[in-house]
Design a protein around this nucleic acid. Structure first.
Lengths: 338, 338
DNA sequence: CCATTCCTTGCAACCGGTTGCGAGAAAGCG
DNA sequence: CGCTTTCTCGCAACCGGTTGCAAGGAATGG
């Protein structure tokens, strides 16, 4: 067993308060005492128990990091950036896999029992009630990759999915596609709904273009593959804006397996720009979501709210942009006028 | 602020001990008291503070989950299985991203400060000294995806990498390749060394086959791509056993980009069988590593060691098997004799 | 009905720290 | 050198629980 504060105090010949202060940034201790404490501490291999201290300070320096996206490769990058960002700030991520958990109350109870200082919810497919539960309980919370329009009493960081739908529509229209379609993720996901809305909105200004849509039942390779295979049996569109990159890759595979060419026969446009999108075998044209910025903003907001609980909530929405690769036909060459 | 045990006791008209016992499995409480406590608790929205309790019980129910593989897509599955498995046992993963952390001592101090009940190290590229530090400190530890031969005082769960090298060699030999090569991960990784060793061993029994080898500088797409591109400039081998699936995909891309065909011109054999390996665009022949079993065993061992600290350490090694897909030429047809 | 055993409960100490308060020591100043 | 101001440090209470112990009460047996 390792040494305790009391043992260090005894060995250094000082009071426990002195030891505690020696380990507290900015506390009033003389150099002499600090040195005595430090040698005693290192002899006993002592390091303070954060959890015990948290009883009085009210701070555990732990942040609940909750997500349900353990099958989408982008989220590995998300976890990497979150954990490193938290660690760099001296915070520790308590990871919660939401997959098996349904009840927001159970989640709240869980994170309360561990008195986390704050909660980051990293998911675009979570009901808005979930983050709200924490606000109600007075626990700082940030919803990353969330929908900003539902932001009431909850910090939201993410992208404008309606705008992404519009960007996709413009992208396809500019490349001369006349029959386009939206192949969304689950119909219930707010991301699907918003992107489809923007897609429609933008194309309503293009009467020459016909639009259709359908939804895959998950943001996954298999779902994308299955849905595209189904679509190919009828008369498919010329280009598809897919719910995300994984879905796109499933769709892409289905098209190629049907003996058709991408982009010559059918165009595909993804969303996310995950690392694999640039792999030569995939080479997916996609709309980039600025993940590092989203995560940096999320961290900034959670830390700010911990320091200042009364702070009013805000939404931070980042712009997305097209990354041109090989799954859409190129822009038509245009003779530039004056 | 939510209610505390003391408040519940007051409201229920009982002592704090009674409340504590009402929330402790198997403690001696009458039904009447339990009911009084339960109503008071729910009125005050009380749930016990695990961390405060941990001071006396010595159990936080937190497990340090440490890894440095935040760029290899298999590890998303690994995190998924670990977190769900831990949660199912009432344990909470405190995630540590080792990427920025060098010093084992710092890691130990960190996890000690949070008095985790145990540590799972999920990485094949970690120095053996790292897990050992925890054993020395008396903290239960399991090294998942580790090298069993270095197992002294540390539970190790993983695969037999030497044997994997042999399987790879046999696989290539059986398919009639005469000039084969090992394209390993970092030369310093024990996995690279062991696989290369087994590969050599097995092929030393095949005098007709020539063997070469080289190492990529990471288990990554880019490293695999770069190393294969370099190899293609000289006279490449007929088939490559690559360090893992991601590396394989990089190599595969480089071969295709050079205008060569896989498997007609060059064969590629991976290791891991991550989810993407079966994607039609990739369709990688690979050696499957039984990840769910490895994780189940890791969880079992860490829990067992927490319950019984004096338990002697063991290594659990799982067999791997070939998953035949499209990046190696098929087995030659053979006329079956008697 | 009484004696004995078992169950339930409260008291109080303790887990490993932090912190407000006041006293004593050190430093600053004329 | 004496007085005021600033530091430093120990005392003791407290954070939110758990648990050994002993006493009181209920249940059991005769």
């Amino acid at each position: 067993m390792r040494g305790t504060l009391k043992q260090v105090a005894e060995r250094a010949g000082v009071s426990t308060s002195a030891v505690s202060r020696a380990f507290t940034q900015g506390a009033s201790v003389s150099d002499k005492t600090r040195r005595k404490v430090e040698t005693a501490a290192s002899e006993l291999d002592y390091s303070p128990n954060v959890l015990a201290g948290s009883l009085t300070t009210g701070r555990t320096k732990m942040i609940g990091l909750v997500s349900n996206n353990f099958h989408n490769p982008v989220f590995l990058e998300v976890f990497d950036l979150f954990t490193r960002g938290l660690q760099a700030r001296g915070l520790r991520p308590l990871l919660v896999n939401l997959t098996d958990m349904v009840d927001p109350g159970a989640l709240l109870r869980l994170l309360r029992q561990y008195s986390v200082d704050g909660v980051i919810i990293a998911s675009s497919t979570v009901p808005p009630a979930l983050p709200l539960v924490f606000t109600t309980a007075g626990i700082p919370v940030v919803h990353s990759f969330g929908r900003y329009s539902t932001a009431h009493g909850v910090h939201v960081v993410g992208i404008d999915n309606v705008e992404c739908g519009r960007i996709a529509a413009r992208t396809l229209a500019l490349r001369g596609y006349r029959r386009v379609a939206f192949l969304g993720g689950p119909a219930t996901a707010s991301t699907s709904q918003d992107r489809w809305l923007g897609f429609q909105q933008e194309l309503s200004g293009h009467p020459g273009i016909t639009v259709s849509h359908s939804f895959a039942n998950a943001y996954s390779y298999d779902a994308g593959h299955a849905e595209m295979a189904r679509l190919l049996r009828d008369s498919p569109a010329e280009a598809y804006f897919c719910g995300d990159d994984v879905l796109s890759i499933g769709a892409l595979s289905a098209v190629r397996q049907a003996g058709l060419s991408v982009p010559d026969d059918i165009g595909i446009l993804g969303l996310n720009d995950m690392e694999m999108a640039r792999w030569a075998l995939i080479n997916l044209t996609t709309i980039r979501q600025p993940i590092p910025e989203i995560i940096a903003a999320s961290l900034e907001l959670i830390v700010a709210q911990i320091d200042e609980p009364a702070r009013s909530t805000e939404a931070r929405i980042f712009p997305c942009d097209l990354v041109e690769r090989g799954t859409l036909r190129p822009l038509p060459v245009r003779i530039s006028g004056t």
